[in-house]
Simulated scan of single mutants.
Amino acid sequence: MESELKPLDSNSKPQLLEPTADDGSTKDDRPLLKPVSTPPSPPIVTPQTIQELEKKFGAYVRNDVYGTMGRGELPLKEKVLLGVALVTIVPIRLVLAVVILVFYYLICRVCTLFSVPNREEEQEDYAHMVGWRRAVIVQCGRFLSRAMLFVIGFYWIKETRRNLNVADKTTTENECKDQSEEPERPGAIISNHVSYLDILYHMSSSFPSFVAKRSVAKLPLVGLISKCLGCVYVQRESKSSDFKGVSGVVTERVREAHQNKFAPMMMLFPEGTTTNGDYLLPFKTGAFLSKAPVLPVILRYPYQRFSPAWDSITGVRHVIFLFCQFVNHIEVTRLPVYYPSQQEKDDPKLYANNIRRLMAREGNLIMSDIGLAEKRIYHAALNGNNSLPSVLHQKDD
């Protein structure tokens, strides 16, 4: 047990368990009728081990009733509520959600008939269409996204627009322009990332473009919708120069949105992965290379039983538990448009760090230094994966 937990210690190097025989089993000199291969046993995760992991990977820890990975022991009352919900509201919500998805897909299909998608740097989108087609896609998309949230249980969305005082403007260096000046259009919306529900909210609010895995473009129904959103596709695990190409496309799209009010806005999650909603991870600089002003938005999901955060729980389990919860909540804090200083324009890392500190302060979020690589280690340990060293070397985008 001790040797298996060593890879999780930041002061020690990852080591694999060494089998005592070539086939991975305990060496035995007794004759066998036929070879027997026994694979190494996966690490056993004990309650003590989980506590150690939670201290180190706090940004990905579930603190709701359902416990670690949504597999905790539930009280009898919670089991009864789940059972009732599974046979009542879950089927209704599932049917309505599918109907909304198919209906919007058909709208996108009709509006894109006989239209050639915009193609650039191996990207493909319909977000640059103009006229009534684009208007129908955007307005219907916003309305149906809000309808989808309503079906899931987000009946009310509390939105707050935060106005920073003079002291805040001084300490954060040119966050907002003087009110007498004409405000410029931000090039991108910057948001913390808590759940896939973030996308639905932003679609209902401003219908921006997102960065998504390239495989999303090939999904039934969702693929066409993502192209209408103008998603920028990236192959996350690719170790080629593809990332540079995508970074260039994102930068150009942010600049275009800043300069052209008819261009689709970019929505970026600079953390690169989801958290439990209480933390803010280090920001990637790709969202700030364009030197354009950005609009910071902070999302919170208050809960009593099940947390809507998609941190260390599988997608299927998350959807089922979410649909079983009758009421869900979103709290949105919109900060003023942040205009970078010349120093921040010259240093994207400084720009990103200043935005991160601002969002952490205004959203009462804890800044953490861990990232996607640590999240993979945490998930691997919880799943009893004995190949943690290989997880360490996966690319962190």
Score class of each variant (00 low, 15 high):
76 L>A: 14
48 Q>K: 15
196 Y>S: 07
256 E>M: 08
58 G>L: 10
93 R>C: 00
142 R>W: 07
262 F>I: 08
286 G>M: 10
396 D>K: 06
147 A>E: 01
337 V>W: 08
123 Q>A: 14
366 I>Y: 10
258 H>A: 14
208 P>F: 06
131 G>V: 10
16 L>E: 10
189 I>G: 09
54 E>K: 06
175 E>D: 12
232 V>W: 04
180 S>N: 11
38 T>M: 03
181 E>S: 11
268 L>P: 03
224 L>K: 09
274 T>M: 03
394 Q>G: 05
244 K>Q: 09
14 P>T: 00
171 T>A: 14
283 F>I: 11
47 P>A: 07
144 L>F: 12
249 V>H: 14
354 N>A: 04
357 R>V: 05
264 P>L: 05
88 T>G: 00
21 A>M: 00
393 H>E: 14
300 R>L: 13
349 K>F: 00
45 V>T: 05
60 Y>A: 06
144 L>V: 09
317 R>Q: 07
384 G>M: 00
134 R>W: 09
103 F>V: 08
164 L>T: 01
125 D>N: 15
396 D>P: 04
138 V>S: 03
271 E>Q: 15
250 V>D: 02
214 R>N: 12
130 V>T: 15
46 T>R: 02
354 N>H: 10
364 N>A: 11
105 Y>D: 02
266 M>R: 11
83 G>E: 07
334 R>G: 07
382 L>N: 14
39 P>Q: 12
96 L>G: 01
61 V>H: 00
249 V>R: 01
12 S>L: 15
211 V>R: 07
357 R>N: 13
280 L>W: 01
30 R>T: 13
56 K>Y: 01
162 R>Y: 05
89 I>V: 12
66 Y>N: 04
202 H>S: 12
262 F>W: 15
277 G>F: 05
174 N>G: 14
154 F>G: 02
310 W>P: 02
101 L>K: 01
167 A>H: 13
119 R>S: 05
351 Y>T: 01
281 L>W: 05
317 R>Y: 06
336 P>I: 00
134 R>G: 09
326 F>S: 12
308 P>W: 05
256 E>D: 08
145 S>F: 08
243 F>G: 05
23 D>Q: 01
158 K>H: 06
60 Y>V: 04
15 Q>M: 14
3 S>G: 13
200 L>Q: 04
353 N>W: 07
236 R>Y: 01
386 N>M: 10
328 N>L: 13
70 G>A: 03
236 R>E: 06
87 V>G: 04
124 E>C: 08
302 P>G: 08
289 L>I: 01
216 V>S: 00
60 Y>H: 06
20 T>K: 08
64 D>E: 01
235 Q>P: 00
91 P>L: 02
172 T>M: 10
382 L>F: 10
175 E>M: 15
339 Y>M: 06
85 A>F: 04
153 G>N: 04
123 Q>H: 06
91 P>S: 02
259 Q>N: 15
29 D>T: 12
327 V>W: 10
75 P>R: 10
366 I>E: 14
374 E>R: 03
179 Q>W: 11
277 G>N: 10
63 N>F: 15
92 I>C: 04
15 Q>G: 12
161 R>N: 13
80 V>A: 09
11 N>Y: 05
46 T>E: 01
376 R>F: 03
191 S>Y: 03
348 P>Y: 03
